[in-house]
Each structure stands twice: as structure tokens, then as C-alpha cells.
Nucleic acid binder design. Structure first.
Lengths: 189, 189, 189, 189
DNA sequence: GATGAATGAGTATTCATTCAT
DNA sequence: TATGAATGAATACTCATTCAT
């Protein structure tokens, strides 16, 4: 039922600019950035932000959901092309490397007071499902330990992201994440 | 060097109560809790909070530094009693299990806008040093991979804490953390 | 004198719908209702409201003037058919009973910040004149005290309306108004 | 249970100034006046207004309740000194003449969206009770019609106030109110 | 030293009005 | 003409910090 007549060109443009600005701002400075500030940086009035996102939570949610949806799409793409379970680790690495830039995800999750709407949770579920497929194949191929499930992997990825952020080692980006992800190798690995 | 005349007994008591209240509040509700609220819960006036901690950051820092100092003390204790490098993993686990209760550490660190003062960084360094000793012994004993240093381990611990928090599995507390910490095992482990 | 070319049919229709919606909304919810909300309920865009009524005050005024004009028409009708001064009280009662439904009049007047335009004041004058004729006849017939003029009667009517609204007694509608209007009876009445 | 330790002198002073400013502002300009504006005029910061009256409604209510309480006190005083039922009309007149200055009461009541708290309603009840005693005595003395009760009288007073305000006749203040109050005379009066 | 009242810059949100489509 | 997106000043309220008592 979402057809809603297509948005006017300028409206869509503004919406995009607000989202992009918010993404960047939340990533760099945390969720504390004020809507007025985001409006200013996006070059629109505060009322415009409010028209597109009636409350701050709606904007946060949208940034988050957009991110989750993009990750889900990537995961599904990986599922489609993976034949032998080898797509698992590369996918996790690309995920983390991307999230390093867009800091929003973990930030939002680590903030206790952000309630995830049903829509976001649904998107998160889809991501986990795609995740799960990659995981099962990798486990069948013997490249991932068998005592973890998709939810565990999600947690480990978040942990890897945290570790990577905590100790970035700029000359070897992704090193810390790689170390943590090693925990997913089979025991005799 | 200020003269630091010893604090009056009631002042010291107030300081302790404020710190304790803040620790609890930051842990449970995040850093967003207002100073007025902390003052109220501690049973003092907001002016008293300000006398002891001239700015909110100072209070946050103190909570954090106290925690780091306590961890450092534990680490040194472990160093003193460890003979064969076997103290490493138990120490990490106790660390994480304690942090799970006192949520402040990781929260504060994950919040971009908290700048760590020199004093805090010094305390963190001490912790890392004690950490390092445990680590080296464990590496010499062959129970920890040799391509990580103390800073790496700190990052991994934070990652493990994050993962644990993300996917708590209440019937098996610490399971997620344990999974992540497996990444520190030697390759042929 | 603008040329006032007759409005296009759809424009006139929109204007009517907006007025009707505004009347209802102002009556039910007070003058605080937003123009956007009125536009939405009328099924037009906010721009359309603005085209017909360049400012909110203009819309309020129009609602008010329309009402006054309708009352004036009723008063003139009463004047035309009244032969013996007996039309006075029934007219006042019908006025009040109608106003009870359309709450706008007194509301708008009781709100200090609404300035009445010349046009509205002119309409109010017309009403008072028609009023006056009824009044004089009634006074000549000895059914109304002689120390009040048309303006006084208008004030008393507003007072009666206020009293009626303040203490509605649903099982005997108009009772409070009737009590207040008794003050217009001749002293020996 | 209201002992609460006496308020500090400066706090009480500020509270009084805010109340006085609000009374004046609400009376002159209606309830739409902003809290910031009231703060400015009272010479305090907006935060101070908020400390004393946590929400705008609380301030409105306090102004209103104060007024009702003062009226109640006057009514009780009249009850104490009235021996023959002759205090009734003078009291109503003094009430109206006072209310003409402090416009708040009727304004607030005519604004649909103000919900009266229990405390205010209780004060209004007390007023009505004192009112009622004066009324009964006057009715027994034969100076007031017997088909009205205290609630009716309250409504009539509000109506008289409205009429007076609508048609002030500055050279004969109170004339309009007097006209309306005549409706309370006994029929053969 | 402790108290808690005062400050005032800052936040999210609303809405009359303007203007591009 | 109609639409509805954009504007931006304004509003109620919050809270770290200051300061009189």
C-alpha cells in the first residue's frame, strides 16, 4: 500500500541531503547532534527536517534502517554468488570496513535509549537470515566453527567492529577486526 | 602541587556517595543522566556535586579512572601470583564479567565526545602495562598467539564485552565473550 | 475597486469548503486550530487556503462576518414580519440557540488578539441597526425596559450566551440564557 | 503535609514577581503569552519560571486558583458580616469590578483547552459554597428570585462580566453588569 | 562546605506564510 | 489556479553551570 505518488524532485533531493548529512553527523559526532545543526549543514530550514522526519527518532531510525537494508542487500548478493562457502569471511570483512566509515550502526545500538521500531527490527531480521545462509554453507564447508549461529556471528561482528575502532592501526586497516574474527575459525583450524 | 589538606569527613562522604550514585546511574541509564538527577539520588544539592566535580566531564572521568585503577590493581595482583602464564584468560574473563555489571567503561569510550584527560590516559597505560606482563608470560607459555600486543588485547576485550552485551544468552553468561576471546589462542590451538 | 471577475466554479467550491471546515473547527476546537489542519480537513492544499484567505486573521474574520451577516438577515426578516414588538425575545432566543452550536462568535470576541476589520464592524453595525428596530418596537409595546439601547442588548445577549455555556443544564437547554434575558424585562414586569 | 520548609526569601520574591507578571499578561493579552516573554518581563530567566511552575498549565492554574481563593475569602468575609441577606448584590458587584481588572478568570474559562486540576476545582467548589450561603439568605430575605441556585448565579456573574466587558461605558462603570444582574431580582421586583 | 535558586544557551517541535512545480 | 514543499521565527522545556544564602 506504499505507492503514495512519487515525491517531488526537490523534496526527494532535500530528503537525501538531510539523510546524508545526518548519516555523516551521527557517525562523526554521535547521536547527540541537534536537528537544527543537521538542518543547517544540509542547507535547509528546521521545518524541512521535521516535514520529512517528524521526530528525531524517525531520522535516526531511517539512517539505521537504510544501513541495515544496504547490508542485507550485500548479504543476499553474496548468497547468490557463493557456491562453496568461501564468501563468508570476505563478506564480514567488507561489512566491517564499510561500517568503519559509517559509524552509526554500533553507536545507535550502544545507546540504550534508542528503541528500534518494528520496521527496523524486521530489516535486522532479514539481515540475520541472509547472514545465516552464508554461515551454514561455510560451516558445511568446514571453514567456520559449528557451535555458533547467525545471532552469535552478528555479535562477534559488532565486537570486531568495536575492537577495530578501539585500536585502529591505520597502516594495517582491518587488522584488529581480522584478529577478532579468527575466533570463528574451527577449533582445529 | 596544591597542599591537598585532607578533606573533611562529611565532604569525603559526600564525594563517595556522588561517585557511587554516578557510577550506578551512568551504568544503568547512560551518560545522559543529568547532574541534578545524580545530586538528587545522592541526597545532596547540585552545588555540592559541582564543588567536587567542577564539570560533568570531571565526574565521568573520575568514575572511569576509578574503574581503570581498580582493574589495574586486579591485574597487578594477578601478575604477582601468576607463575606459569595461566592467569591470563581467567583474568580477562573476570574483567569482562565485572564490566558487564558496571557498564560505564565501554559506554563512555564508545561515546565520541568524551575526551580522556592525561590522568585517565596514564591510568589506562598502567593497566596496559600490567596487562602486558600477563600477556608476555602467557605468550612465552604458548597459550596465547604471539602476533598481538597489550593494546590489541585491550581492544579484543572491549570487542568481547560488546559481543557479550549484544547477545547475552542469560543461561550461559560469558559464552559470547568466551567465543570472541578464542581469537587469542595460538593458531594451532 | 477591483474588477472582481466572477470566481471559477471550482475556486468557489474550494472557498466554501474551507469556510465550512474552518467554521466547524473554530467552533469545536477554538481558534488555535492550524491552517494546515483546516486545509487537510477541507481536502485542499495549504496554498489554496492562503490564496483565498491571505492570512489566518482573514479567515477568522470571514467566518465571523458571515455569521454576523446571517444574523443580520434574520434580524431584518424579524423586523419585516414583526407588527407588535413581540418578535424581540423570540429572536434573541433563536440567536442564542444558534450561537450555542456555532461557538465561533463569542470565542473570537473573547480572544483579545483578534482585531475586527472595518468590514466586520460595518456588518456588526448593520446587525445592531436591525436589532435596534426590534428593540424600539418592543420598548414602545412596553415589553422591554427603556433604559437600554441596541448596544446594551448586544452585550446582554453575549452575556446570556456566556452564562448558558457556563452552566448548560442539558435537560433544559436555554434555561440559563432565559434567566439572564429576564434582565431586559421592564422593572414592574 | 504541605509544610515543605519555608521558601528562601529570593525564591519567594521571584515567584511572586512571576505570578504578578503572568496575571497581568494573561489578563491583558490572553493565555497565548509565552513563558519566555513572562520571564523577560519579570526580569528572570526562563529556567526560573520553569523551576516554580514546571509547565505552562501549572502557571495558568496558579493564577486562576489564587484568584478563586481570594474571591472565596471575600465571599466568606461577606457571609460572616451579613445579617439580613443584603450582602448579596454588593458582593457580586465588587466581584465583577475586581474581575474587570484581572481579566484572567473568564479568559481561562472561555478557553476550551485548559483543563482545571482537582485543586482548582476544589477551590471553585469552596467559592460556590460561600456563594451559596449568601444566596440562600438573600432568597430568604426575598431579595433574590428563588428559582436559581449557586451554580446558576455563578454563570450569571460570568455573563454579567462578559456583558460589562463587551460594552464598558467608561463614564458609568459597572452599568452593564448591573443591568444583567437585575435578572436575579424576584419576579414581582 | 553545603544548599538549592537562578541563569541562559540549547533542544525538539509547531505553524503561518511563501513559493517552486 | 492548485499543490504541497520549504521557510524560519517562535514555543515550551532542559540542564550544566554559577552564585547568593
Amino acid at each position: 500500500m506504499e505507492s503514495q505518488r512519487p515525491m517531488r524532485a526537490d523534496a526527494r533531493r532535500n530528503r537525501e541531503r538531510i539523510l546524508q548529512t545526518a548519516r555523516q553527523a551521527f557517525a562523526t559526532e554521535g547521536l547527540g547532534v541537534s536537528l537544527d545543526e543537521i538542518a543547517r549543514r544540509a542547507g535547509v530550514g528546521p521545518g524541512t527536517v521535521h516535514r520529512h522526519f517528524p521526530a528525531k527518532e524517525a531520522l535516526i531510525e531511517e539512517v539505521l534502517t537504510e544501513h541495515l537494508a544496504s547490508l542485507t542487500e550485500q548479504a543476499r548478493q553474496a548468497v547468490r554468488t557463493d557456491r562453496d562457502g568461501s564468501a563468508f569471511f570476505p563478506f564480514l570483512h567488507s561489512l566491517i570496513s564499510e561500517a568503519r566509515a559509517k559509524q552509526d550502526l554500533a553507536d545507535a545500538l550502544s545507546q540504550a535509549d534508542v528503541k528500534l521500531s518494528e520496521r527496523t527490527q524486521e530489516t535486522a531480521l532479514h539481515l540475520r537470515q541472509a547472514f545465516g545462509e552464508l554461515l551454514v554453507r561455510a560451516q558445511e564447508a568446514g571453514t567456520v566453527r559449528t557451535d555458533v549461529d547467525a545471532e552469535d556471528v552478528q555479535a562477534v561482528v559488532l565486537g570486531a567492529l568495536t575492537a577495530e575502532r578501539q585500536n585502529p592501526t591505520p597502516d594495517r586497516p582491518g587488522r584488529m577486526a581480522a584478529v577478532v574474527l579468527d575466533c570463528l575459525l574451527p577449533e582445529g583450524g
